[in-house]
């Protein structure tokens, strides 16, 4: 404990020292004040406070205010304020596809390593110049360990007869399911049109669809379903809650879910926003999220240790992690959504 705390302390000092050579006085003057973070509520907001706001930004005299809400509501607010010269959000926390959309609409400030020095440590596959990945989680196949002896190892297994009617699908991440299927069938996760017939069969075979993530665990426990594609973080969360489940990685690779942060172009305090992003990438802050939520760090330097490392360990050989091509996803999304709705409706 003591060792870890001191390490975290040292790292914090190191980060501060690293930023010092660049115009120290100006930076200090600019980064003071208030930063408004538009974020989800609940655990995530709490962890932002305890891992970033208090330990890292507090000493820098940056006061953090959270604007808590659901992602759609917060994004809607951002869009509504797009024409204002000065908005009231400095950091927007959103899923990676939403950040892509916001950037396409010209709402996000370009980012580089002069603004956010820690950006150079970001896992290369997740890196872009408009939003920084904060945490991520690969898609795995969750399965009930009491009923499933041979876990699925490829998306094709979900279509096999042995799981017929026992596959659970989460409506709110159906695009990722399409990508996973495409990756298995064609080797390209973005070959979305190619897997429609397979998924149509999967849905029509009587497999279950859930509107809310929280409905998944009771369904797995009661035997309504046995398997399903979900985020690794969710598997860990439910394991902690005592559900007899485990996750297996697809041979063909795992599509990843990324939670990102961006800076709106009309952010009132950009200097503080950059400082916030830099703090967010600090290994200590990243580990906090891995500890509590089971998400993987996006900073390649933030290595995990001990029990957390074991829980989050990727199997050997290391599975292929596939970040979606958000441009292709955005282009296909309306068509995909329409197809998926009608498929579920079954009329």
């Amino acid at each position: 404990m003591i060792e870890r705390a001191s390490r975290r302390h040292l790292l914090g000092l190191g980060a501060a020292a690293a930023s010092l050579p660049f115009m120290p006085h100006v930076a200090r003057a600019q980064t003071g004040g208030r930063v408004v973070v538009s974020t989800w509520g609940g655990d995530y907001a709490g962890l932002l406070g305890s891992n970033i706001d208090k330990p890292i930004l507090g000493p820098k005299n940056i006061e953090v205010t959270q604007d808590v809400g659901t992602e759609p509501a917060r994004i809607a607010k951002l869009i509504a304020q797009r024409r204002l010269p000065r908005g009231n959000v400095d950091i927007i926390c959103a899923q990676a596809p939403s950040c892509y959309d916001l950037n396409e609409a010209g709402l996000l400030e370009p980012l580089d390593e002069t603004k956010v020095p820690n950006m150079r440590h970001v896992v290369p596959e997740l890196r872009n110049n408009y939003a920084l990945p904060h945490i991520f989680s690969p898609q795995v196949f969750i399965y009930n360990t009491e009923r499933v002896q041979a876990p699925p190892t490829t998306f094709a297994d979900l279509m096999a007869d042995r799981f017929k009617g026992k596959v659970g699908l989460l409506d709110n991440s159906f695009t990722y399911i399409v990508m996973a299927a495409a990756l298995q069938k064609t080797g390209d996760a973005m070959n979305l049109q190619a897997v429609k017939p397979e998924l149509e069969k999967l849905v029509r075979d009587g497999n279950k669809t859930y509107t809310v993530t929280d409905a998944f665990a009771p369904a797995l426990r009661s035997g309504e379903i046995d398997v399903g594609p979900v985020w690794q973080a969710r598997v860990i969360f439910w394991q902690k809650a005592g559900v007899a489940v485990r996750g297996s990685f697809p041979q063909e690779g795992s599509v990843v879910y990324v939670s990102s942060m961006g800076v709106p172009k009309n952010a009132p305090n950009k200097a503080a926003a950059f400082a916030y992003l830099n703090a967010m990438l600090e290994p200590a802050a990243q580990r906090g999220f891995a500890d509590s939520m089971g998400y993987l760090p996006t900073n390649a330097e933030a290595t995990l240790e001990g029990e957390v490392a074991q829980r989050l360990a990727l199997p050997e050989p290391r599975p292929k992690l596939v970040a979606p091509d958000y441009a292709k996803l955005a282009a296909a999304r309306d068509d995909l959504n329409d197809w998926w709705r009608r498929l579920l409706d079954g009329r």
Binding site: T70, A76, D101, D171, T209, T211, V212, D334, R341, L344
Partner: peptide
């Protein structure tokens, strides 16, 4: 309807919300 009807049962309010929030089609 969202929680008890599930993904396959569609009513107006959840559909409206999805168009607004998920698809950003105001």
């Amino acid at each position: 309807p969202l929680l008890l009807g599930g993904a396959r049962f569609q009513m107006m309010a959840p559909m409206l919300f999805r168009e607004y929030a998920v698809n950003n089609n105001w």
